[in-house]
Amino acid sequence: MIQDQRLEDRVNHASGTIKIAGKTVHRLGFGAMRLVGPHVWGEPADRGASVQLMRRAVELGVDFIDTASVYGPHVSEEIIREALHPYPEHVLITTKGGQTQSGPGSYAVLGRPEYLRQECVLSLRRLGVDHIDLYQLHQVDPSVPFEDQIGELKKLKEEGKIGAIGLNEVTVDQVTAARQIVEIASVQNQYSITERKHEDVLEYCAREGLPFISWFPLDIGALARPDSPLRGLAAQIDATPAQVALAWLLARAENLVPIPGTASMTHLEENIAAATVRLSPAQITELNALAS
């Protein structure tokens, strides 16, 4: 495994940088969903450990942190504030609205304009800020006119409550429709070495110069088995399967921003060290063939 006692001196900076919502951040970010309790519900078993994990991530060079009001609900945002407020100027914290959670793992989409506004205002309070640099629509609500959902985010931007607007789990057509209404700063869809259903969205974003944020980037599943090609390749370069999966994402496109999340300090440091992994063209070709 690629490790170093002075990990913070060299690793995340190796991932390269990208400009999102007016800030230049490193391309290997952090997804804060797993800071909370099991099934993304309630308090974590050890809140202090989650606070320390978040502080360690920033020490390691993480300056793009993704959360959402539904994580907990609300717990992830509160932990981020406890860990990092007042926030370092270079750190970009983005949150999302447009979903509800009524119990562990029980989600529903809710994109009514009044709810999006309420969630944005409450996120401002929980994060302890008067302005959210990047606010994302968590999911498009098919029961609400699309232009109403995007239009409300546009109003929040015009009021100065948010600086930039991002979209989650969207198609190319939805991105292009939203861009007819307001400037879109980023797109976040599920994407990993084994899950590439949004390949067309990634390619569109690459052409248009839009950052593409990859959630659940470590969906490596069966590829991490002892006999899998991913584990075999990882052994060849003294890395872990997770590091190889993240290195492949960083090599896949310059606008791609993986946001691996974890509740483990060991896994956090392992994930960040993936920025130093370099894959050869032949290895990338081999990994390209592993899509499910």
Results as ranks from 00 to 15, higher is better:
S214I: 09
W215N: 10
E159A: 15
A282P: 03
K161L: 15
V257T: 14
H138K: 03
K23N: 01
T276G: 01
V172F: 02
L127W: 06
A273Y: 02
S280F: 03
L122H: 04
E114C: 01
D238N: 15
L127A: 06
E77V: 01
H26N: 15
D66I: 01
Y107T: 06
L250I: 06
S192M: 00
R126D: 07
L124G: 10
T176G: 00
Q236H: 11
A49L: 04
G221C: 01
I80N: 03
A275T: 08
D219W: 05
S102R: 07
T100M: 08
L156C: 02
D141G: 08
N255R: 06
V172D: 04
K96W: 09
T266L: 07
A45Y: 03
L134Q: 06
A253T: 04
K154S: 13
A185E: 15
P88S: 02
D9R: 13
L53C: 11
A164F: 00
R231L: 09
F30E: 14
V175A: 13
I18S: 07
D227I: 02
G163N: 14
R125G: 07
M1L: 03
P44V: 15
G128Y: 12
S228M: 11
V62Q: 05
V11S: 14
L202W: 12
E254F: 10
D148T: 12
Q180H: 06
D238S: 15
S264V: 05
H13S: 11
A178M: 09
L84G: 02
L60Y: 06
M33P: 00
R55T: 05
L60K: 09
R34H: 14
Q118F: 10
K161E: 09
A274V: 09
K155T: 14
G72P: 04
D148F: 11
A274Y: 00
M33H: 00
R10F: 06
K96Q: 12
E195S: 09
P281H: 00
R179M: 15
V129Y: 09
D238L: 12
S228G: 15
P217C: 04
D130E: 15
A57G: 13
D66E: 13
L156M: 13
V51T: 11
P241W: 07
V144N: 10
A108C: 00
H131E: 14
C120M: 08
E43W: 05
G166A: 13
V244D: 02
P229L: 14
D130Y: 09
A289W: 00
H74D: 10
I259K: 08
L137Y: 07
V75Y: 01
T17C: 01
M54R: 04
R55L: 05
D200G: 01
S76H: 05
L250Q: 12
A239P: 04
Q149V: 12
K161A: 06
D66Q: 05
I220N: 06
T176N: 11
A242N: 13
A206G: 00
T266M: 04
L28I: 12
E78S: 03
S76D: 06
E286D: 00
